[in-house]
Simulated scan of single mutants.
Amino acid sequence: MRKKNSLKLWMASAILFSLFISCGQDRRERVDGEVLMVEEQGSFLAGGAAVTTPGIYNENDPTNPAGQTLHGDHAYVFYQKPLHARKYPLVFLHGNGESSKTWETTPDGREGFQNIFLRLGFSVYLVDQPRRGKAGRSMVSDSISVLPEEAFQFEIFRLGIWPEFFPDVQFPKDPQSLEQFMRQITPNTGAFDKHVVADAMSAVFDRTGEGVLVTHSMGGGPGWLTVIRNPKVRAVVAYEPGSSFIFPKGEVPAPMPTSCPYGALTADSVSLEQFTSLTRIPIIIYYGDNIPKEPTEHWGQDTWRVRLAMARLFAECINRHGGDAKVVHLPEIGIKGNTHFLFSDLNNLEISDLMFDFLHEKGLD
């Protein structure tokens, strides 16, 4: 009798959850108050390469590579599917120095986009790109330097000007949160290669089927290339893409000088046919706060000045060729204080609302 009652209770909960998802109730209430119910979760590896060394393997000489294989340059993917999942899953790709951790719990312990959008009924796929995190098996050798550089990270991620936070910053200012943030930074195990990442991401979409690609920072460049490679990408939401903007041959903007030690920002060239892939889907690009309008000696901000400017040229080019691209600079719509990690900032529920509204407007929810 107790088992029957438990089954009835579970079924009633599932029905109520389904009704809750299907009705138009407030998304923030859903995030804060509902029990998180997952129907399926798991992980897989996608894409990559493999080599076999000529020769015959000798079990008495196991460190000799002869006759042995090496698999690497794949992506690692952890996924969760909620009950009554929406049609299109969200595939999240991190940026430089990060892993899929960037989308998980925030440095101060709040829910990140992984759980926020899972609660909203989306299947979520969190990717570790090739040569990073749980996809660390690289097909090329590299060395990992041990160098104190967290003041550099603090400034380029626009938390402030070391060691002071920006007064209005949406990052928690307690030492514990900053420590958690710094500890999530992780190195490459092989040189970053946007084409290797894009190949692996295309393989991810072969597994997930049609879905929405959500990128951050350096993940933006491989994201555009993934769209070119795989028509299963139905839209792109890009948070502060920082490099490898692509333009058709003959339309590439001039390099944009900056005080950043990386030097001038340059764009990449692709064929018009390849570029046209970007015009077939909706694209939205978000940038946070504390990005100056004029050149400044504060390189951690100036580098984002030119990246925002390049993103606007990129969107204009897509639209000029008949596409649907938009750049949203959050302070211009009244949202202040966001860092480079706006999706994990203190107002990440507000940021998630913007993304949800975009998905709804484009019929992707």
Rank of each mutant, 00 (worst) to 15 (best):
G220Q: 10
Q176P: 02
G220I: 00
P222F: 06
F275K: 07
P255K: 09
S6G: 12
W304N: 10
L225P: 05
G209I: 05
L16V: 15
I116L: 14
R86A: 06
S217D: 09
D108P: 02
I284Y: 11
G136A: 12
G95E: 08
Y287M: 03
G97S: 09
G42W: 07
F165D: 03
G209D: 06
I21Y: 14
T208Y: 00
L364N: 03
I291G: 01
G242L: 08
T226R: 04
R27S: 10
L330S: 04
T215V: 15
Q180G: 14
T339Q: 05
N5P: 06
F44I: 08
G334K: 00
I116Y: 05
G334N: 00
Y287F: 13
V196Y: 01
R234M: 09
V212G: 01
K326V: 13
E40C: 07
G72Y: 03
E155M: 09
A309V: 08
L349Y: 15
Q129T: 09
D289I: 09
P222L: 07
Q80C: 04
D345F: 04
S145N: 10
A198C: 13
I21K: 15
F341T: 11
H321G: 02
I318F: 06
G47A: 08
T53G: 04
L9E: 13
R30I: 05
R234E: 05
W103N: 05
D128G: 11
S138R: 10
T63I: 15
T105W: 07
P292L: 08
V51T: 15
D193F: 06
S177T: 13
R27P: 07
L16F: 12
G223H: 00
Q114C: 08
V127W: 02
K134S: 06
P148A: 12
P167M: 01
N319Q: 07
I156S: 04
F192H: 11
W103R: 11
S100P: 08
V35Y: 07
P257N: 01
L83E: 00
F192P: 03
Q41F: 13
E150Y: 10
G242N: 09
G97H: 03
G190S: 05
F166Q: 01
R234K: 15
F314K: 03
E294V: 12
S143E: 15
V212A: 08
V233K: 00
L120F: 06
T186F: 11
T303K: 03
S259G: 08
Q68C: 02
T296W: 01
L126V: 10
L159F: 14
R131C: 04
E179R: 12
L70W: 12
D345W: 07
F356S: 15
L308Q: 11
P248H: 04
E40P: 03
I144N: 01
E164L: 10
V31M: 09
D345C: 10
G219L: 05
S344E: 12
S141L: 15
E29V: 14
I283M: 02
H216G: 01
S244E: 15
F343L: 03
Y125M: 08
A203Y: 01
